[in-house]
């Protein structure tokens, strides 16, 4: 039984303990315990709500913290699509830090996270393509049935002439093994987490990725209000860029493990220079559309994107 004076931050997670959040949350909890001299601690709870409802349970105070994938709430989150644009040559750690800085300086003003406190923004690594059978370059992907998530990945698939197959993550494996989809576009760590490598022996790498996913770690206002001023300050001191970097690094490590695996057991293909050129042309269109949509929310999209690219470049060096 826990001591009366100890506050427990109940963290809701919508993916099982085996996921990358096993690294992120325990480390964050350690930081919080350290900062508050053990007066505040944390506990992970699974299956409290569906993935799209995670932001709601934190808003309502049913959970004290959670992590959300912005692509699951289309219509609400638009500015977070900037980080998802293809072509950013950075790992998950660099792009998470870039995302966090852009959020603090520009994206915050759009007020899309109203009702919760953003602890940190983060992204997974570049999304790549995994196919059941070998394809001869980008042109051969026209008409291919590809499993996609949401957000920018859907725009990319459409622009490439792919046929989007929409199934939730736990079903990706069967969708592929049965041939309902010819391939999937996902971050490379899913090869390990979802055992995709068993059904997609051909891995296609687009430098900078086809997209990347935008996430946020969020805190409930009611939880922060429950803490003493001192503890609230201490908990908030664990958030921000440091947390973004830690989370991004965990995603990056998962990607490295995933990459090692696909290099060992699948045949790796990198798109030719010509294909990369073609894709850059296609991405330019998506980029402009996204900038326009973000600007509609009253955010200086071009400046935010520049900051993202600048930060990521500096971080890599």
């Amino acid at each position: 039984p826990e001591a009366r004076s100890e506050e427990v931050m109940r963290i809701s997670s919508w993916l099982p303990p085996s996921h990358v959040n096993t690294e992120i949350f325990p480390t964050w909890i350690e930081w919080i315990e350290e900062a508050t001299d053990g007066r505040v601690t944390g506990k992970i709870e699974y299956d409290l709500a569906s993935p799209p409802d995670q932001i709601d349970i934190v808003t309502d105070g049913a959970a004290d913290a959670s992590w959300i994938f912005h692509g699951y709430n289309p219509g609400r989150f638009v500015t977070t699509k900037l980080i998802e644009l293809p072509g950013l040559l950075a790992d998950a750690e660099a792009s998470s830090v870039a995302h966090q800085r852009a959020y603090e300086t520009y994206l915050k003003d759009a007020g899309e996270h109203e009702g919760v406190v953003v602890a940190a923004m983060m992204t997974h690594g570049p999304g790549q393509l995994y196919m059941r059978t070998a394809r001869d370059g980008l042109a051969a992907l026209d008409g291919a049935k590809i499993r996609i998530g949401g957000g920018v990945s859907a725009d990319v698939a459409e622009a490439l002439g792919m046929v989007g197959v929409q199934v939730p993550a736990p079903q990706v494996y069967e969708t592929l093994s049965g041939g309902v989809a010819d391939g999937a576009m996902m971050p490379i760590d899913t090869n390990k987490a979802l055992r995709l490598y068993e059904v997609t022996p051909e891995t296609y790498i687009m430098p900078g990725g086809f997209y990347r996913g935008s996430f946020a770690l969020i805190l409930s206002e009611a939880f922060l209000a429950r803490l003493s001023d001192e503890d609230r300050e201490a908990v908030l001191s664990t958030t921000g860029e440091r947390l973004a970097a830690m989370a991004g690094a965990a995603w990056a490590r998962a990607d490295i493990a995933g990459l090692e695996l696909v290099e060992e057991v699948t045949s790796m293909h990198t798109f030719s220079d010509e294909d990369q050129q073609t894709f850059a042309g296609i991405s330019a269109g998506i980029r402009q559309e996204t900038i326009d949509a973000v600007a509609d929310r009253g955010v200086d999209a071009a400046a935010a994107l520049e900051m993202i690219e600048e930060t990521a470049r500096a971080y890599v060096q």
Partner: peptide, 19 residues
């Protein structure tokens, strides 16, 4: 919850139908 969906402009994934 319906009011919240309307306030934030939630839409469906592909067809962008309001929820």
């Amino acid at each position: 919850r319906a009011e919240r969906l309307m306030k934030w402009g939630y839409v469906s994934d592909f067809l962008h139908l309001p929820l």
